[in-house]
C-alpha cells in the first residue's frame, strides 16, 4: 500500500507532539494496567516464593504447580481464559472507569507475572547469607520479622535489576489485552489504522512505548542507586547505572565496576 520509505511524518509529529485526549486516555490505560499488574505480580511472586520455602509439602507443591502452569502456557491464552471463563465487574470511580475487560487483563497479567517473579524473588532470598537469618533469630526475631527487616531488604538488591526488566516487558505485554477489548494504546493505533489505513500510527505508539520504557530506565537506575547505599564500597553512580542498563558491554569495557 505504501512505498518503501513512505513514513508519514505528519501523522507521527501529530501523535507524538500533539496527542489527543482520546490518545491520552489510552496511554493512561497502558500505564495503570502495567503498574497495577506489576505490583500485584510482585506480591503474588513473594507469596509464592515464601510458599516454596514452606515447611508443609503441599504448600510447596501448590507453588510449584502455579509456576509450572503459568510459565508453561501462552500469556494470550491466559488472558482469554480469564476474561471469558469468569464474569468481571466494571469499577466506576466516577472520574475514572475501569472496564471489566481491563480488570480481567490485570488479573491475567498479574498471575502470569507472579510466576516469573517467584523465581526472581527466590533467587534474591537465596543470595542472602544463611547466617543473616540465624543472627536475626538469635536476637529474638520471628521468621516473619527477620524476613521483613533483615532478609528481604538485602534480597532487594538482587531482585530489583531483573524486576526492572520484568516491568519493561510488562509495559509492552499490556498491548495483548487489546485482544479482549481493552481500549489501551495499541487499540488506539489499531483503530486509527483500520479507519485511515495509515501504518504510521503503529510507529507513533512505538515511540510512546519507547518513552515509557526509557522513563522507567531512569527510575530503575535511581532505585538501584538508593538500594546500593552501604557496605561494599563499589557503589555505582547514577550515570554508571544508566550506562549499564543501556549498554552493559560498553560500561564493562570502560572498566566500570559492576557485579
Amino acid at each position: 500500500m505504501h512505498g518503501l520509505v513512505a513514513v508519514d511524518w505528519h501523522v507521527i509529529w501529530q501523535q507524538v507532539f500533539h496527542p489527543t485526549n482520546v490518545f491520552f486516555r489510552t496511554l493512561w490505560a497502558t500505564v495503570y494496567i502495567s503498574v497495577v499488574s506489576q505490583v500485584a505480580g510482585v506480591l503474588l511472586g513473594l507469596l509464592a516464593a515464601l510458599a516454596r520455602m514452606s515447611r508443609f509439602a503441599p504448600v510447596r507443591w501448590i507453588s510449584g504447580v502455579y509456576v509450572w502452569i503459568f510459565r508453561g502456557t501462552p500469556l494470550l491464552v491466559q488472558i482469554f481464559y480469564v476474561y471469558f471463563a469468569f464474569s468481571w465487574p466494571t469499577l466506576n470511580f466516577g472520574f475514572w472507569v475501569v472496564p471489566d475487560a481491563a480488570i480481567a487483563g490485570i488479573v491475567a497479567l498479574s498471575i502470569n507475572e507472579g510466576a516469573y517473579m517467584r523465581e526472581i524473588i527466590r533467587a534474591g532470598i537465596d543470595s542472602v547469607d544463611r547466617g543473616q537469618m540465624e543472627a536475626a533469630r538469635s536476637v529474638g526475631m520471628t521468621y516473619g520479622k527477620a524476613m521483613r527487616r533483615i532478609i528481604l531488604p538485602q534480597a532487594a538488591r538482587v531482585i530489583v535489576p531483573p524486576l526492572g526488566n520484568e516491568f519493561n516487558n510488562m509495559m509492552k505485554n499490556t498491548s495483548l489485552v487489546y485482544t479482549i477489548g481493552v481500549f489501551e494504546m495499541f487499540a488506539y493505533a489499531e483503530q486509527n489504522y483500520s479507519q485511515f489505513f495509515i501504518a504510521d500510527y503503529f510507529l507513533a505508539i512505538a515511540i510512546w512505548y519507547l518513552v515509557l520504557t526509557t522513563v522507567w530506565t531512569f527510575i530503575q537506575a535511581y532505585i538501584e542507586r538508593r538500594l546500593s547505599v552501604s557496605d561494599r564500597g563499589d557503589e555505582l553512580s547514577f550515570r554508571e547505572r544508566l550506562e549499564l542498563a543501556w549498554n552493559p558491554m560498553a560500561a564493562w569495557a570502560r572498566g566500570t565496576p559492576h557485579r
Binding site: 547466617g131 543473616q132 543472627a135 538485602q154 552501604s230
Partner: peptide
C-alpha cells in the same frame, strides 16, 4: 534472653 556471637559475625550489612 540469650546473646549469641557467631564465628562469622553475621552483622546486618545494610
Amino acid at each position: 534472653e540469650i546473646g549469641m556471637v557467631f564465628q562469622r559475625f553475621n552483622l546486618f550489612p545494610h
